[in-house]
Design a protein around this nucleic acid. Structure first.
Lengths: 250, 250
DNA sequence: CTAATTAGGTCGAACGTTTGACCTATTCAA
DNA sequence: TTGAATAGGTCAAACGTTCGACCTAATTAG
């Protein structure tokens, strides 16, 4: 039985196997954890021979390290510019609390839609979470290249809004609260879904979350309701609402 | 020299082995995940023979299920009365926003100190988190007996504060945001510690978090600053702060 | 009172399977 | 031909589970 005729994909270039392995490993490690995923499951999911893991990455551990490394690289185009835009927005607001609110609202929306999207970011978030809880040798890298820049940028916003120093403990805690609030909807999605009767996130549902979280974050920071948010059908509110006090610039 | 004198621990009662197994398994499963913990590691940590797992729980899976079951029972005395107290407090406030704020502040403090304590609750939180992310067959039980009561109670507070219906999607999302914010400091503790230069939570540090999160939550809910919080040294604030609007009873 | 039996629990030693790492032969592109 | 990549297989170690022997405390029969 000569096996060779009509072979559409044979001798795939190694780069493709490598990439498939990285992608499949990311999903599997994120959803089941490092120890729960066998090299055979990895190879099967990536439609790659078992040896490819050893060949390309030196072993299971090397594959995991490389998954984390490429996670950082992958999220750069999504988070890097947003962080820069946030820093620039805070600087440009220059004490104008309405503009600060707009910048904050924009960033919250960006963060939430990134965190709750159904693409790569989904398992990347999960994988980061696992690193938070049981840090591997790659955790410091993740901290330096992803966490610190993000937190520093948001801390700048918080500092501008509260008038405290960016490095003050209160600023950093409030920063963590803001980011944590956005992440919570990604982390505890099964609970959120159960509470809301959802089975997954859709763009409309994410928008609902944005419309809920944005005013909350603005209130936490003592900022006025942003102009771009709540375009009408959002939250007319009954009589009881605070956080609307007339307070000009700082 | 008959064999029997001075035998400090012999014929250990099975209940003790069972309990030690449950305790050790809870910690190990929480910190490393189900698949990453071997039955041998379990038996060693519990200072119990390997066969005890099969004898008492039918196997590794049965042990895990029982760990989760006893988690629910263990957290009952801590969370059950708090939930009742919250519900009662919301009802007693009867539209008095200052009293509502006091109740909310009390509950936030209770939730945070519970979540961030260093005892059992630490690994219990972690284990719950793991269930959120990859629900096992025991997830519905956890949902019904721990999550729903807690969320329903907080939703009552949120509804009273915002004037929306307790079952409204916006209410439930805001509820998730409030609870998620408290949990975030437990989930991402490694990140928080790295940001603040901490190596662990102390009562003073938890108090700092309480003093940060409480005003944030009150602001999210549009409630006035609670009387019992910020007893003086908390946060004098510079000029820029909102959420202090004079608003009497509803 | 004594001796045999039962019940509850522990123990060490295996069971068969699966794991990650490794190895060699083979295949294809250049 | 050469070298990167794949296929298939072997290996020791570790996995969860099961088993029979064993121990002790309580119960029962005589």
């Amino acid at each position: 039985m000569g096996g060779r005729p009509a072979r559409p994909r044979r001798r795939a270039d190694g780069a493709a196997s490598r990439a498939r392995l990285l992608e499949a490993a990311g999903k599997l490690f994120a959803s089941q954890g490092y120890a729960a995923v066998s090299t055979r499951a990895l190879a099967t999911a990536a439609r790659v021979n078992l040896s490819a893991i050893g060949y390309h990455f030196g072993g299971k551990q090397g594959l995991y390290r490389e998954v984390l490394r490429s996670l950082i690289a992958d999220t750069e185009p999504l988070l890097g510019p947003a962080v820069e835009h946030l820093v620039a927005g805070v600087a440009a607001a220059a004490g104008d609390r309405a503009r600060l609110a707009d910048t904050a609202a924009w960033f919250v929306r960006h963060l939430l839609t990134s965190f709750l999207a159904d693409g790569r970011m989904r398992w990347q978030m999960a994988l980061m979470l696992r690193e938070f809880h049981q840090p591997s040798e790659a955790f410091p890298m993740l901290l330096d290249e992803r966490i610190h820049p993000l937190h520093d940028a948001v801390a700048g916003l918080v500092a501008a809004a509260t008038g405290r120093a960016p490095a003050a403990p209160e600023t950093r805690l409030l920063t963590a609260a803001v980011i944590g609030q956005c992440m919570a909807f990604g982390i505890a999605r099964t609970v959120i879904w159960a509470r809301l009767g959802w089975d997954r996130y859709t763009p409309e549902r994410v928008e609902q979350i944005v419309q809920t979280v944005t005013p909350a974050v603005l209130a936490m920071l003592g900022l006025p309701r942003a102009a771009g948010e709540a375009p009408g059908a959002a939250k007319p509110q009954r009589g009881a609402r605070g956080t609307r006090g007339a307070r000009g610039a700082a």
